[in-house]
Design a protein around this nucleic acid. Structure first.
Lengths: 213, 213
DNA sequence: TAGATTGTTAATCGATTAACAATC
DNA sequence: TAGATTGTTAATCGATTAACAATC
């Protein structure tokens, strides 16, 4: 019996672990593992088995007591929870080093994220292609976003343009933003935004190394 | 009176917010702000003033009651806490798209992180330069790391080589690792590792969009 | 059946928020 | 002095861990 647990509050921490489970399960599947226990899955990921069972229990009952989880079934279920069983259309705004790297990141496609367009203001870049994806002028954002049903925008422009680019994306009809600039972007309530602040990682290392060296 | 609060437990969340404070303070300073309240700083970052005061209080008393924080003083103090007032020598292993982008990321240097070397196994890349930084064969890691006193290694190789590259870095004397591969790397207790899993961001957006669309 | 492992409830731990005395 | 704002203690909230009944 599959329950619908809409009433359970799902923590951000849980959502961030699900992709980890998903990926590790896929790897296990490739290795030929058909059934896996929370114990074994936890060992591979570096998470306690209780944590995994708790996380999953927020969405339903996916395992078999005394047995474990059927890998393919769990992959399907987590994929469904994360919305990975469908295609998302994404766009990158800003072809700097990072934007270029992300545009070349082939793995997105394999996870259902289809890069539909790249935007930049530089006339020298507009009209060129990165891996068969065209670079458009930012002014054409409303048109292209609508035409290609783009739901997610990735912002890799210099920090000072982050907010104005976000505004333009939102006005064009985008539903979610992945922000690589180190500034806080104000967005309407209904919009989802994930901040990927790459400068935190090194600072964190710096902090710990200063203390231990 | 500056106290030494070695007994206070500092949460990971606090450490992750400090770079945010640091950066925002620097921006404020550039705008000519000399004194800032936790209220105003919080507003700019999107964090409650209580949070900021609590975070800082783990390290000492940096403000003036009834006044606020002297921006330059707080920058210096947070910089000291994070270990940003010194130079760290870093190396990148793996010149794929992401490694290339990071090697070109000029901002590292401005924060005291000096890219000293790049490593790759591809003979076509070895000997070339990215922004005046030479690409060395991975076999020369022990030699170069020691010679240039490199403390931090950035791993941007394909997932399957992550662990062996980490082992090599550690054996070469590296003290901290910034891991961009989506796999768990086992390291000795004394080593610091920060995982930057870029695939989580899109999955998280996918999850929220699935629910709200 | 006995052993294994889930799903869930209760207990613990940790982090955030609220409140306020101290003091500039 | 009165108003403002810090630093800290107490209260709340949320997330993780432990324990265990259910059951395959």
């Amino acid at each position: 019996m599959k329950e619908n647990k809409q009433h359970v509050v799902i923590s951000k921490a849980t959502i961030d672990r699900l992709p980890l489970y998903y990926r590790t399960l896929k790897l296990s599947q490739e290795e030929g593992v058909a059934i896996i226990s929370s114990e074994e899955l936890g060992r591979r990921i570096g998470v306690t088995p209780e944590q995994i069972r708790k996380d999953l229990s927020a969405f339903g009952e996916f395992g078999k007591k005394g047995v474990g989880y059927y890998v393919s079934e769990l992959i399907r279920n987590i994929g469904e929870i994360l919305g990975l069983n469908r295609q998302w259309n994404i766009a990158i705004v800003g072809v700097g080093h990072l934007g270029w790297a992300l545009a070349n990141y082939a793995n997105f496609a394999s996870q259902g994220f289809q890069l539909q367009a790249i935007f930049d203001v530089d006339a020298n870049k507009v009209g060129k292609y990165i891996n068969d994806v065209e670079i458009f002028d930012c002014d054409r954002m409303p048109e292209i976003v609508a035409e290609r049903d783009i739901q997610i925008g990735i912002i890799t422009v210099p920090a000072e343009y982050a907010q104005s680019v976000a505004n333009k994306l939102i006005k064009s009809g985008i539903k979610g933003i992945w922000n690589f600039t180190p500034v806080k972007i104000d967005v309407p309530e209904r919009l989802h935004i994930v901040n990927e602040d790459l400068s935190v990682g090194l600072s964190s290392l710096s902090f710990h190394l200063s203390r231990s060296l």
